[in-house]
Design a protein around this nucleic acid. Structure first.
Lengths: 204, 204
DNA sequence: CACTTAGACTTAACACTGTTAACTAAAGCT
DNA sequence: AGCTTTAGTTAACAGTGTTAAGTCTAAGTG
């Protein structure tokens, strides 16, 4: 019975190898500039081998994306555990989110700036969405806590959470997509945005 | 001498025809799902004819994008002329921007959500950027006016303007790129975002 | 040990893509 | 009439994602 286990393990290993090669290439050259053949070259297998481990290119993208979101989630989680004040926690989370996106722009692009083509039913995308929602949940509970403690004016938790996400994503994506726009200093802008938004959330 | 004029006019006409076909297809099917051959089919010319009028596909994209920005700019301009109160003007501009993006999601995608590949020097992109900056200028002067009149707390005009753009763009792009996320009602979210941000900009 | 079967992997091919070079045909000018 | 410019086309190249068919090896079975 050890045979099947070994085979399963080897299968898993190659899958992971493909995943890492793909991630590396995606991040380095951008998703749409990476062909299946390039990934195959990198791992020294034939292009079609990839299709034995992933449904198609979008599935490969999705799998890479899941890993990215896990990484972001871990970072936010760590930061959360290290901060007790709920307002401070949200502010730092905000900054960490943007900085994560700027640190790994291609990862961010893949995870948040790429449209998921409507794939037949939700085999793909589901995992990715589940992952994203988990991260979003952290934001939501943070907002709820701030409102409960009276740090924020009473508002709809969902509306505030989604607004905060949009603000974070707005900065991150604009920086990534339009690097030649005459931006002011990044940190200054992030700080300004945080100031404005959290000022606006305080009780009157 | 009328000959050259006629030729120039015909040239312009065909160019416009290509542009409209491309815009229509881009908007309907998304930029990367439209091939040069599809555009050519639509106008009933050979694919290579397009290259007599546009440098390459990115140039075609850029030209469509310029038109889009002009349309957005016109809308914002009209709204600006119709509103005297500077705060109200900014708020309505905010809403109009997002609604424009949601009304023409593929146009928005093309203009704001597509990365400009680094083309040798700036033949392309320059026009587009100039256009975008013009629109951004409206935002900037609106913000400056609000600060001058004491409607906003004194802050760096550029920081506020860029933050506002990021907020608008954040909502718009998330709606477009992640339509399956469990968003609350669109208008409610836009309103919430406007409330939060402009509340945060008021003097203490 | 010989033989079949299952699995992993590859080769060859299809139908596309953006783009270029070389060609044709017509209109204008002298 | 002959030459030149211009507009447009055809054919081709190198690349893409993806599938169907084939190969080769390792495991299981008489």
């Amino acid at each position: 019975m050890g045979v099947q286990e070994r085979r399963a393990r080897q299968r898993q290993e190659l899958r992971q190898e493909i995943l890492e090669a793909a991630r590396d290439l995606f991040v380095r050259e951008g998703f749409e500039n990476v062909s299946m053949r390039k990934v195959a070259d990198r791992i020294e297998y034939s292009p079609t081998t990839i299709y034995l481990y992933f449904q198609d290119k979008a599935d490969l993208l999705d799998s890479v994306c899941v890993e990215t979101l896990a990484k972001l989630d871990a970072r936010l989680q760590a930061l959360r555990d290290a901060t007790s004040d709920p307002l401070e926690r949200l502010k730092r989370g905000f900054r960490a989110y943007v900085e994560f996106g700027l640190e790994y722009p291609n990862d961010y692009r893949v995870a948040f700036l790429t449209e998921f083509k409507a794939s037949a039913e939700p085999p793909r995308e589901l995992r990715c969405r589940a992952m994203g929602q988990k991260t979003f949940d952290h934001l939501r509970t943070g907002v709820a806590e701030c409102i409960r403690q009276g740090i924020f004016a009473p508002r709809d938790v969902e509306a505030v959470s989604q607004s905060l996400w949009a603000a974070m994503h707005g900065i991150t994506s604009l920086f990534i997509l339009h690097p030649r726009f005459p931006w002011i200093d990044r940190d200054t802008l992030i700080t300004a945005m945080i100031d404005i938004v959290f000022q606006g959330l305080r009780p009157a």
